[in-house]
Every structure is written in structure tokens, then in C-alpha cells.
Design a protein around this nucleic acid. Sequence first.
RNA 1: GGGGGAGUGUCCCGAGUGGCAAAGGGGGCGGACUGUAAAUCCGCUGACUACGUCUUCGUUGGUUCGAGUCCAACCUCCCCCA
Length: 415
Amino acid sequence: MPAAPQFKSEFLRNFAERGAYYDCSGPEELDALFQKERVTAYIGFDCTADSLHVGSLVQLMTLRRLQQAGHKPILLMGGGTTKAGDPSGKDEARQLLSNEQIEANKQSILSGIRHLLKFGDGPSDAILVDNAEWLDKLEWIAFLRDVGRHFSVNRMLTMESVKLRLDREQPLSFLEFNYSIMQAYDFVELYKRYGCRLQSSGSDQWGNVVSGIDLGHRLANVQLYGLTTPLITTASGAKMGKTAAGAVWLNAARVTPYDYWQFWRNTEDRDVGRFLRLFTDLLLAEIGRLEALQGAELNEAKKTLATEATAILHGRANADAAAETARRAFEEGATAAGLPTIVAMLPEGVLNLAVAAGLASSNSEARKLIANGGLKLNDVVVSDPKLAVAVSALNADGVLKLSAGKKKHVLVKPA
RNA sequence: GGGGGAGUGUCCCGAGUGGCAAAGGGGGCGGACUGUAAAUCCGCUGACUACGUCUUCGUUGGUUCGAGUCCAACCUCCCCCA
């Protein structure tokens, strides 16, 4: 990672101090620009799923901090680029999505991150743009002549996203090959439409960002800038945001505020300070105090991290509720009402209950869980896979608690 | 267009001689130890009406009592020659 320069502008200084800085195309000039005027900057996301996940959070936080510093963020939804599919980091082409699906994904993604940014007409309010607006209308020959001639296939072949696919001997369609051209074109188009001078992205998009800057010179005779964030990994080297259940999604429909809170609560010791800086709005002085905590005391910092990060995404009320549920469940050992809950007909076999509760994905897995002593019913280890859970197992609150391991608890209510 | 090589457990990498639910890693899950951490150790890691049954090795057929393993065609990728 390049060393972060000493920035003078409020935004870049804060950005770097928080560990979000990876690289920049023209650090001094951009720093000067940030001091001089309100900068319009964008980050793009494709609509390949109905939710973004934690891997995109650094980028979203970049927009948030831009806005906090009084600049103008553009959230670019890739309604057009999604139709091509970004080959970066993927072994094979994504299945093509229908236009309806893309549109639905776009709406869903937006609803999931509405707490992160303030949209509107104010000077530093975020605006939402969809690149389908211009990409859909392009004409093949005209586009090739105006834009395509500025791209060297030789160089495109050396781009990381393309090379990976070729090295792995996986097919790369011409459609996907064009992705980086579209992204470069987006940048210039956003400059023309909104005066957007900066594209921020993850470091894996560097090649595409640079292509856009280059295209800016050629098509609009303007100096554009790129600013990238590092790929966030955990201290043990794993890519962040991959857990048991798969990706940590931002939409509450996929990952509830409670589970999201738990994700942050389970941060490794060594990551606490770094994550507090990256993913919360807490002041650096306060973060310094929190990360200095030693041993088990660090758990307090993790709770703060969990609550603050959850509040940014899901709102303060949901974050506090998640914290309280966790406190009751883990610190009092109570069957906190806020735990995930399912409704089931009793009596029912434990295997079916475990599956219904999402604690196992199949009966076989539930059996294995039991065989390993990992399934508990009201905090008592279940040893018999044939156990039929009857109404008599309900506790005083009229529910029963089913647990897989020490951390996953689900309440079962009788139908 | 011709010649050669490759595609393995739907997370990844990867052994595999006709008897294979298929070696070994990584990852993941569970257990022990802890602090809802890391590291370490142990177990599990295709499904089901479960001492048995069913489905898996690019696709589709074929040979065989029996096929991931042999044959044919097709799909995809890599290399060499044109």
C-alpha cells in the first residue's frame, strides 16, 4: 500500500487518518481541489444482487464522509453495466439478469442503505444516478469510433480483472471484456452531466478508474481524479464479511440488525481499532481510548463498534435494540425476546425444528450438529436426534430456545 | 482447419490403477480452552423415512456383473502447427 501523503484538506486528512486511503491518482492536486471547492465525487455499484454487502461498506463510508465534509456524493447505480457484468474477481460470467430483475435489485439496494446517505437537492445532498440512462442508448459504431478507439486491447489484456480470468483458463466473453470501457465512459459522462471530478472505489477497480481518467483527457480535456480504498481483510488475513451464512448483507431482509450487530461484535481483537475508524463516525480521540483497552475489556470496545456500525446502517433504534437483545441473551443468559423467532407446530422433531430455525440446512446437518454436541434446547444439550419437542418444553415465557453452538439462538413459539 | 492436453465432492485447490460416497489441503461448522476474540487441539463437512437406501466426478450415449476411471459424440478451456 502506498504511504498516505500529508493531506491538508479536511476530507482527505480525515479519510487517511481513518485508514480508508489506499491510493490516489494525483494526491497534491486533489488535495488542493478539496480545499478550494465543493467536490462532486462518485462511486458506482452494480445491481447484481438485491443487496450490497459489507465488502462495499468502505466505499459507502467514503460517500458518507464526503457528505459530512460538505462535498457532493453521487451514488451511481450500474443499471447499464450490470447488463454486461464485471469480470473482476470472478471465475465465470454471471448469469445474465433481466431488466426487471436489475431494476428490482436497484430499488432493493437503495432501500438497504438509505440511512447511510442523505439524498436531496441541497448542495451536499447525495444524488442517485443510473448509468442505464446513457449506456442503454449508445450506438455501436458511433461509440466505437468516439470512445473505442482510445482503448488499447493490448493494455486491456493486462488488466487484473481480465488477466485473472485468462490465467485461470476460464472463459471471458466479449461482453464482459467491455465492462471496463463502460466504467471509464461513465466517469466522463458524470463529469459532463454533473461536473463530477472524482471517482472513488475499491483498490481492485484501479485499472478501470485510471481508464476513466485517461478518457477524460481525451474526450473532455479535463483532469479527473481517482481515490481508492484498501481491500479490507481481517487481522487473520480473511476477506472481511464472509461468515457462516455467507456474505454479510446490508439489507435487513437478508441480515437482520441483530445479526449485523453480532457480526461486528465478533470482530477480532486486533481489528477493533481499525474497524472503529473505518466503520463508525466516532471521533478519533474516542477510538484511541477504546482500542487501548486490554484483554476482556476490549469487549466493551467491540460492543461500541457493533452498536455504532449498526446505527449507521439500520438506525439508532434498531442498533440499541440489537445491543439490548445481545446483552440479555449473552450476559444474563435469558431468552431475550429480540432473538430471531420462528413459529412451529408442536410436538415436532428436533431435526425439523433445527432446520426450520435455520440452524441447520438439512436434517443431515442437524444430526451432525447433535452428534457433535452442538445443539441445545433451552440450554440443555440435545443428544437424541429422534427427540420430539412437545409443548411441555416451553419455558415460563411460553417459548423455547434452540441454540446451535454458543452464539446462534432462535426462539420457537408454538403455533 | 490439423495435432496434443485438461474439466473431480455445485465454496476453492486438488489425488484418483474398473469395485468409490471417492485421498489430502484450504475454507466452513461443532466441541475443548477462553473474553461472543486470536492461537492451539479434537470431531464433522452429498442427501434421506438412516446399522439401510438414493444421488454425485463437463454433457449425452455406449462397453462391462460393476465406470470418475475404458469407448464415441458434443460443450468449454489451454498449448503447438496452419
